[in-house]
């Protein structure tokens, strides 16, 4: 399967990239690692007239400690995040989530920025043009039907990135550069929770940096991923938990889920349930139930929605117990 035709732009600096985006007419698409976009272009899910390849913008690559915490360039490969000593020590839930992405070779290519901006996925959507024609297309691309929520007018394709739930529990912020201004938003405010629009990023904007605050530095955490294969797969459900403990008592805690809704979502009510308490099996069950209640899976993947929701409950519970029990800091 060939790729659609496009003009290729290869900026060397962020300024150049942003001005290229501003000048370009027609449908423009930014590409970083390409691990999701290139196959999707083969399937004609994207057919930009201009492709702006960011791989040459080296200033957007790298991990730096700063006064406010940690700064990660959006083009930093997931493999680098996985093996970075600072992240492993200070923000372990992110290292674990990065490690869970796809496979080693794909982690060498895929970037943190790309993982945050990942397109939503659905078995009725991530198919070839010929396949989608045979199902009458869908609301997300080329059609007006939703096959998983018949009669619905919204897209329920799921966000299936592994690192965003980890970033959410770490209270990450992101920086977005446009031609006129640079803005900074909480990651939690970035997503729309709609499968088609998915995120608040203009087509002329670039996600440039990820900031991890000092406030969550040193939080213990874990990421659990439901997958059939031990490698390669996108998550069928995922949960990240992170918490700070003192003397066996939970001070702060957060949980976020992925691959169940059109956006990665923080699970609300966790802190209220856990703060000031010693973790018990009953509390862990409660947190699991909260995570499951946040999940709205539909038949977007091969495993049934019921099972995926059940698993996010189990995974949240187990992750929490494991994190709370592995020695206090």
């Amino acid at each position: 399967m060939s790729l659609p035709e496009f003009q290729l732009r290869r900026p060397k600096t962020l300024a150049e990239a942003v001005s290229l985006l501003a000048q370009t007419d027609g449908i423009v698409q930014v590409i970083a690692g390409g691990t999701d976009l290139i196959p999707s272009m083969r399937q004609r899910l994207f057919a930009p007239s201009e492709l702006v390849d960011l791989r040459g913008v080296t200033e957007l690559r790298g991990i730096r400690q700063s006064a406010e915490g940690l700064e990660i360039g959006a083009l930093t490969p997931l493999a680098e995040i996985d093996r970075n000593e600072i992240i492993r020590r200070d923000y372990p839930v992110l290292a674990e989530a990065a490690h869970a992405v796809a496979s080693p070779v794909l982690r060498n290519m895929g970037t943190i920025g790309g993982n945050i901006c990942l397109d939503t996925r659905c078995l009725w959507y991530n198919q070839s043009l010929a396949w989608r024609k045979s199902c009458g297309y869908c609301i997300k691309k080329d059609g007006d039907l939703c096959h998983v929520a018949p009669g619905g007018t919204e897209c329920w394709a799921v966000f299936a990135g592994d690192t965003p739930p980890a970033l959410l529990v770490l209270d990450a912020e992101i920086e977005i550069a446009g031609c006129d201004a640079t803005r900074r938003v909480r990651l939690a405010d970035f997503y729309t929770n709609q499968g088609d629009t998915r995120m608040k990023l203009g087509s002329r904007e670039i996600l440039t940096r990820v900031f991890l605050p000092r406030s969550t530095r040193g939080w213990r955490g874990a990421y659990r991923k439901l997958r059939v294969r031990g490698s390669i797969d996108y998550p069928l459900a995922g949960v990240a938990v992170a918490l700070r403990m003192r003397n066996g008592v939970v001070e702060n805690a957060k949980a976020a889920i992925t691959a169940l809704n059109p956006a990665p979502l923080l699970v609300s009510g966790i802190e209220e349930q856990l703060a000031g308490k010693t973790l018990t099996a009953v509390l862990a069950e409660t947190v699991g139930a909260l995570a499951a209640n946040t999940a709205r899976p539909l038949t977007t993947s091969a495993l049934t929605p019921e099972y995926r929701r059940e698993m996010v409950r189990v995974m949240a519970k187990r992750a929490l117990v494991e994190v709370a029990s592995c020695g206090s800091r």
Partner: peptide, 19 residues
Amino acid sequence: CTVEIDGEPMLACTLLAAA
């Protein structure tokens, strides 16, 4: 299609030649 790019294994089918 795995090839090494600057010493790292990557998928040649997922890279643009010109890039």
